[in-house]
């Protein structure tokens, strides 16, 4: 594998939660990283670390073609709009679907050796008690914009793969860990401030950001062309997640599990309110839907083929908690 020269990677989403983990590990392993950034991205995280930054946008194919080094070893497509608020649907579609199509076209033009696409577990049929790679992907008909656009993006990758692009897809579960600016880390803040009204009824599979990043690199090295790799992890009810957060913070947490109907209704109300105020609601109907499911994820393929190592829940939350404190986001 070592051909004397460092391997080169092109990364989208380098300033995001998962992207930071990925780029950090790539740099530690001696990769030469070229990263796409938007004009307004905050790149201070990387300090003095050596990264070739290229300003551009997923929505501008010309900027992508200029940014991707010729015959780059890997393109890691991590960037996505993860919003679960219907108000942002159009932007989301442009970034997730058209952005991915633009990137795929650019990768083909620049003869990228391999592309790893970061998708999501939620493109699979969420109504199953357990999903694996053989489960049908029903995300295309979802009313949740994030799920639908990520499904369309994955389809685009599969089409490009048929046209000769060497591509591998990873489908991570809920991601926990440090550098989380406000996905699950929001739970810490809500518990800390006593703002959590109750516990969502569902359960989820939680993956450690660092382990997911390692699996993404491994998918580039050892993943089979055109395959999906589900990256699940610790299966826990949200009750357990919140109890663990409360335990870490020494804070009282509600013990009441909200009925799904109540949660959905509350989310509808908040969305209605947001329509008038224009402020982003704390709980959206899409968000409520995602925490009412009870889907376990079988990560056997990733464990066997990529050496994926899921971490226990407390460990991921400890990682997140320590970072929140270091970053001054939590006392």
């Amino acid at each position: 594998m070592s051909e004397g020269r460092p391997r080169r990677a092109f990364v989208t989403g380098a300033t995001g939660f998962l992207g930071k983990h990925l780029v950090e590990q790539l740099l530690d392993q001696g990769w030469q990283v070229t990263a796409l950034h938007r004009r307004d991205s905050d790149r201070s995280f990387y300090g003095e670390r050596v990264i070739t930054w290229v300003e551009g946008s997923l929505q501008d194919q010309a900027s992508l073609a200029a940014a991707i080094p010729m015959e780059v070893d890997r393109v890691f497509h991590v960037a996505a709009n993860t919003s679960i608020w219907a108000r942002e649907a159009e932007v989301q579609r442009r970034i997730n679907v058209e952005g991915t199509r633009n990137l795929l076209a650019a990768a083909l033009t620049r003869r990228a050796r391999r592309l790893v696409h970061v998708s999501t577990w939620s493109v699979y049929d969420l109504h199953r008690p357990e999903i694996d790679e053989a489960t049908p992907q029903t995300g295309g008909s979802s009313w949740i914009g994030y799920v639908r656009t990520k499904w369309q993006a994955e389809q685009a990758v599969k089409t490009a793969a048929e046209r000769g692009l060497d591509a591998v897809i990873v489908n991570p579960a809920h991601i926990l860990g440090r550098y989380d600016p406000g996905t699950w880390s929001r739970m810490f803040l809500m518990v800390d401030q006593g703002r959590l009204p109750g516990i969502p009824p569902g359960s989820g599979s939680f993956a450690h950001a660092a382990a997911v990043a390692s699996a993404i690199i491994a998918a580039g090295d050892r993943g089979r062309r055109g395959q999906n790799y589900l990256l699940g992890g610790a299966d826990h009810s949200f009750h357990e997640v919140i109890a663990e957060i409360g335990f870490r913070l020494g804070a009282k947490v509600p013990s009441r599990v909200l009925p799904a109907a109540a949660l959905r209704a509350a989310a509808r109300l908040q969305a209605l309110k947001a329509r008038f105020t224009g402020e982003r609601p704390e709980l959206t109907p899409e968000g409520a839907e995602m925490v009412c499911h009870r889907t376990r994820i079988a990560s056997t393929r990733a464990i066997d083929e990529l050496g994926y190592r899921p971490a226990p829940l407390y460990y991921m939350l400890a990682d997140c908690h320590t970072w929140l404190k270091t970053a001054g986001l939590l006392r």
């Binding site: 109890a243 409360g246 226990p312 829940l313 407390y314």
Partner: peptide
């Protein structure tokens, strides 16, 4: 060992919430 420690941890969490009550 990972599983055993995870179980131990969630036992401690369960006790903490019992003690809160």
């Amino acid at each position: 060992a990972t599983d055993a420690l995870a179980a131990a941890r969630s036992m401690l969490v369960a006790m903490a919430s019992l003690n809160q009550d």
